[in-house]
Design a protein around this nucleic acid. Structure first.
Lengths: 236, 236
DNA sequence: TCTTTAGTTGATCAATCATTCAACATTTTC
DNA sequence: GAAAATGTTGAATGATTGATCAACTAAAGA
């Protein structure tokens, strides 16, 4: 038996298969995309695909790995180029998804979100990279929120906030696709903005009350809460 | 050709097929559920199913119609029994989804959310009932928010807030299923609570400033904003 | 140059897919 | 109680599914 783990990682054929499969999985979903469709679109015969991937599930894992590897280049870097303001980056990120929705006629939202709901239970091995993708995505948002330092209250739960941003994105994408309109998505983003502004306002208030100078990079806040028994637990 | 529209609406067989199909679509998804699986689980032969439904897509539409019809009994009524406080009902609603996730081993989240991402593009006729389901869901939340009256600021956008609650639910369910933990969901719900509390605090402040008495049922707030050209537009 | 490894071909497979329909059974209508 | 409408049976259909593999070619290493 052939060892398929890492077969021809650099091969152009392998890359083309992954590229096409990613596109088709995003447009039609994993189950609805036949291997034959991938083969036809990639201009490749079945033997080649099964030379690089043990089967369709392995192809899915390859697509997910590639998708995660490209997350920074495709998403974070454009957003970070768009604005230096760490809090505005949150909204530039959400706007990126809104633009992609609109320019694709509300078909292309979040591939990983689609797969999370479609295969998380039926293909257990796929759940892990999906989970890791969400971790990375919200982790970057969390870093932006932490970079905002004292602009947010010290006790504001940044990890939980980052998970909320992800929820608003996925829930917004879902509603926008169902509605074929950005409006419900934009409404949720507007409320998120209003929430962050209220947090900034509170931070300003507390800062002037205690007579502190506005520090650009605030000290790292404590991201934990105390449980009733005194133990620390993470809220996300 | 037989007219399938409304074939034997009350038939016990038809009802059993819908019940089983709903369950299987929720557990495995629409595409991954074969008609043969539905037939076996329902203890029915193919002819019966095709007597009531033109095909698999029509079965899906039947499931969606039934699911919408049961939304009040299954979701809203239990929540409204749980608490009279209109704002607490929002969180009782979210808690209902959390409980269902946990008791099903993180497999059963929101059927309509799953279907929205799986078939919204590929089965255009299904998009309409999915859309209507989201409308009804967020519409009820909106009604609760409006029932909170003056406890929320007059300018708080209740329809947009309701859409945000829906986004938090769907995004939270998605993350919880990917993580196989409630934590990310609970984190987002916690932030939503914090947001609503900040809105309540502001409403209290503005109420005392203008010297008004706290009214249980506030006058209906203006759910519109003024655009740059003076026209009103809905934000959701 | 010879050998080995990597990559490609495409016919072929069994399994599953959604769907059909003539025959039969039951219930309703008049 | 005859006729009509409604519901049920289950074998059969053709299309599509993911996957296999022996034969072949191209590239890499000695």
């Amino acid at each position: 038996m052939i060892d398929h783990s890492n077969r021809g990682s650099g091969s152009v054929t392998r890359e083309r298969i992954l590229e096409i499969a990613e596109q088709l999985f995003h447009e039609r979903g994993y189950g609805a995309t036949g291997v034959a469709t991938v083969l036809r679109a990639a201009g490749v015969r079945s033997g080649s695909l099964y030379h690089f991937f043990r089967g369709k599930e392995a192809l899915l894992l390859g697509v997910l790995a590639r998708h995660l590897a490209l997350l920074r280049i495709r998403v974070f870097e454009p957003v970070e180029r768009a604005t230096d303001d760490p809090l505005e980056r949150v909204f530039a990120l959400l706007q990126l998804y809104m633009r992609n929705l609109e320019s694709s006629g509300f078909t292309l939202g979040c591939l990983v979100g689609n797969l999370a709901l479609e295969v998380a239970d039926t293909i257990p091995t796929a759940r892990v990279p999906i989970d890791r993708y969400f971790d990375t995505w919200s982790g970057e948002v969390q870093r932006w929120l932490e970079a905002a330092g004292g602009r947010l209250p010290a006790d504001a739960d940044r990890p939980a906030l980052a998970r909320t941003v992800l929820a608003v994105m996925e829930g917004g994408v879902m509603q926008a696709r169902a509605h074929r309109e950005l409006r419900p998505f934009a409404a949720a983003v507007g409320q998120l903005r209003s929430y962050l502004e209220s947090l900034e306002a509170r931070a300003r208030r507390e800062r002037t009350e205690s007579g502190q100078s506005p520090s650009g990079e605030g000290r790292r806040p404590d991201p934990t809460r105390r449980g009733i028994n005194g133990s620390a637990w993470r809220t996300w």
